[in-house]
């Protein structure tokens, strides 16, 4: 099979202006991936499937990944007016000062496709596509018209992550019930409060329960609040 660079070159040759970049993968599995621009993704997909040499006719796996906003602290060289008093005389001089500044890197939702070829029996070509942000602009082109196996998997990604696939023949929620509003696999999802009887609660379960009761205490609802401190709050026994 061709290496990832050759495939990139073949794509750029076949679909001019495709905007493909290689995303290296540090793990020993060596499965590097190609990031596609959503605008040209559909033509690239059709080319990958219909090309005689690649013949990637089998889309094995489509996965949604949520990359939330990250706080990045980075060292920034900033010119800063520094006033120094040298033997009694005020002097202000330009100086580059190292400062660590917190910058919020906007997150995104990502779709990863694993393609194989049943005709030529060669291994995974990994495609990735990113949405613009995580809130309003979450459209990506659907690849179901090219590979039918993406139909249910893209519906599941829409259901659990909230990526809207344009061009999908029947985009509905796959796993959760239709009246369900939020997208539960996102990392900032708070699951409903059902922590009434937790006889062996510790660590994570307590943290999640606290997320609700803290909310309730602020809202002043007393029903679900945690009783007074102390350990006797163990159910039964």
């Amino acid at each position: 099979m061709k290496t990832i660079e050759e495939i990139k070159a073949a794509i750029e040759a076949a679909v001019p202006g495709a905007g493909v970049e290689v995303v290296p993968n540090a793990s020993p599995s060596g499965q590097h991936s190609l990031r596609l621009e959503p605008s040209h993704a559909f033509e690239v997909a059709k080319f990958l499937r219909d090309d005689a040499e690649l013949a990637l006719d089998f889309l094995s796996n489509a996965t949604g990944v949520d990359w939330p906003d990250k706080e990045v602290t980075e060292k920034v060289k900033v010119k800063r007016l520094v006033t120094k008093t040298v033997d009694g005389v005020e002097q202000s001089a330009e100086e580059t000062v190292e400062e660590s500044r917190k910058r919020v890197e906007p997150g995104c939702l990502e779709v990863v496709y694993h393609l194989f070829s049943m005709a030529k029996k060669h291994g995974p070509v990994v495609l990735r596509m990113k949405t613009v942000n995580r809130t309003d602009n979450v459209e990506l082109p659907s690849l179901t018209p090219v590979w039918r196996s993406a139909e249910l998997q893209e519906r599941e990604i829409f259901d659990l992550f909230g990526i809207v696939f344009t061009g999908h023949p029947d985009l509905r929620r796959l796993l959760m019930w239709d009246a369900f509003k939020d997208h539960p696999m996102r990392r900032d999802y708070v699951d409903p409060d059902d922590y009434e009887y937790e006889p062996t609660a510790h660590e994570q379960v307590l943290a999640r329960a606290a997320a609700h009761t803290a909310g309730e205490q602020i809202a002043g609802a007393s029903a679900g609040a945690i009783p007074g401190g102390g350990q006797e709050g163990i159910g039964g026994k």
Binding site: N25, A26, S27, P28, S29, Q31, S60, N61, V126
Partner: peptide
């Protein structure tokens, strides 16, 4: 703790 990276095994 595996090193950062990704893998697809089947």
């Amino acid at each position: 703790r595996p090193k950062p990276g990704e893998a697809y095994g089947r």
